[in-house]
Design a protein around this nucleic acid. Structure first.
Lengths: 338, 338
DNA sequence: GTGAAAGCGCTAACAA
DNA sequence: TTGTTAGCGCTTTCAC
């Protein structure tokens, strides 16, 4: 069934059906009602492929995320989808699972679907796919790439201040030997987080001990592995800051495994504040990044770019803040002075 | 840029460009290569809206889920997306957040996009949207609705046996007073889970005490609330089976809050086995539902319906099994005999 | 092996 | 206020 079919039954032309569906005021109410009736009767839905083809724009925004299994992202997805639904737009989501080929594929899907913009959260991102998007003039927002351009906006997750208060918190508890477990090396977000950590240490008058800095993978096993390394050190840290909560949870597991307890023997701080943090035992002290705010900024950036595709993108920022729970406590006297 | 543009540059017709893109063997290799070069040079992506419009099918399967914040679903999404990517299809996901209006909207989106099939996991589902899909001849798979029809398949999550072994497990630990916290009342899955619980109790020679049966909402707060009710009973249960893991986790919280400890004072069993179960303390004993298998069956059902749209749908089944961890332990002597 | 052309379902400019 | 029509980008006969 198509508009012509509806038109025939309602005794009008397909143009009128189109007008009714799009709420044009230039249709006599009686006609509109008649058409509406037929539409409902037959449960007609206009084919969006035809509409998009005709209009050149789809009303769909893409969202590309690395790992739907990290609870941080579902919460972003939810926020983003809510905003889009509220604004009569749609969301098209794709997951990369950290594979470059999946990133390529995801971008490709966005491109062929003619989405009106893409929020790209894949943290470890090659520039290739991004250029692909830009080349095709698809408005783009990234997270924490700290680069903007024509049609390219960015939302900075500025952890420096948050980490400074996190370190201050640990310091006030007597910790002097503080470790860090980051994400994969050499990519933007991971580097930024480590940079923020280094700055935060410095602000607190402490030096980063290279041995105390390890690499994870943003997931639980990575954190667990890295923490085991840290614990096997002769001279080991008494507290840890992790690049995200899953990493911190992995660390928690490694610590428990080794027979130590948190926060008595060791303090741990994560990043993100996924819901899970408050469900664990001990509840995790962490730097909260507001997901809804994040989703809101993505939307704002994309809408802005849509309004004026030639305008330069904007740099937005969001500032995580410390949420103290029970995974941090006083440094043990013995460890503290070692 | 469109195929005609590519065609002009490559000195061929748009038909040939189409053939090259679709890998037709009826193009002279030299020509194909030339065209391919232009395509890559210009980073051309064919407009899928035109393709779908022309072909009448999109190569996209829809996935509608209630709550992306429940880790069970991201894991299903991941499995489903993987299968689709491997099979050169795409996924279009929508979330309902348990709102009937969002279900409507989600179904509508699937319909206008001309998806080739929908996996509908919204547990508490009205028949309206389902009929809408069926009426529009969109192949459909549901989860645990236990109804099939033309183009309508179902994947039964058969918890009866699993629950029977769960209850047997509790029984062997000395528990005689076993409670149950379900999902919302009056809808299919919740009813089935409760039914399975009742059967499992009977199989183990025990009676269901109505007072011990409470209603949650498949989320943590619902489980917490229901558990508080259970704990406030003068004569209370010593063990609990929850309709899903989030409910069980809520129960865990309520128990801890009340000063009791798990598994010493109370035993808890969940359903699903989300990754989280193993991350909690104590790790949750639960009935595991294999997400990848589930996703695989959705795909199978949809592909089957696509192959022959007039064939009756199939009833698939999946059987959760008990995973024993540390949230279950011996009933305390005092409680056990009360 | 390649091209011309019709048409998928819709919208919008123009005509009536 | 309503209808006619061209055309969005693609695929696919059919002709050459």
């Amino acid at each position: 069934m198509d508009m012509r079919g509806i038109a025939k039954i309602a005794g009008v032309s397909s143009a009128t059906v189109s007008r009714v569906i799009n709420g044009s005021s230039a249709v006599r109410p009686a006609t509109a009602k008649r058409v509406q009736q037929v539409i409902e009767e037959l449960q007609f839905f206009p084919n969006s492929n035809a509409t998009t083809l005709k209009q050149g724009k789809s009303g769909v925004y893409g969202l590309i995320i690395p790992d739907i299994t990290n609870p941080f992202f579902p919460e972003v997805i939810r926020g983003f989808e809510r905003i889009l639904v509220d604004n009569d737009r749609e969301m098209f989501m794709a997951t990369t699972e950290f594979h470059p080929s999946r990133i390529q594929q995801s971008v490709r899907r966005m491109l062929i679907r003619k989405v009106d913009g893409v929020a790209l959260l894949a943290s470890e991102i090659e520039t290739g796919p991004i250029e692909s998007l830009i080349h095709n003039r698809v408005p783009l927002v990234t997270m924490d790439r700290r680069q903007t351009g024509s049609g390219l906006s960015d939302v900075l997750v500025d952890t420096t201040r948050g980490m400074t208060s996190a370190i201050a918190h640990l310091r006030s508890l007597g910790h002097r030997k503080i470790g860090f477990i980051g994400g994969s090396l050499g990519r933007s977000i991971s580097d930024h987080r480590f940079q923020a950590f280094a700055t935060a240490m410095q602000e607190n008058g402490m030096a980063v001990k290279p041995d105390f800095v390890r690499v994870g993978n943003y997931r639980v096993p990575g954190g667990e592995r890295a923490m085991r390394e840290l614990l096997s050190l002769k001279n080991r840290p008494t507290a840890l800051l992790a690049a995200n909560d899953l990493t911190a949870i992995g660390a928690l597991r490694a610590i428990r495994e080794s027979g130590l307890s948190v926060p008595n023997d060791f303090s741990v701080i994560g990043c993100d504040d996924i819901d899970l943090c408050d469900l664990l035992w001990p509840p995790l002290t962490t730097l909260r990044t507001a997901r809804d705010e994040l989703a809101g900024l993505f939307f704002k950036a994309l809408e802005g770019a849509k309004a004026d595709p030639h305008a330069p993108g904007s740099q937005f920022a969001i500032e995580p803040y410390l949420v103290v729970r029970n995974s941090t406590g006083p440094a043990r006297a013995a460890s503290a002075k070692a």
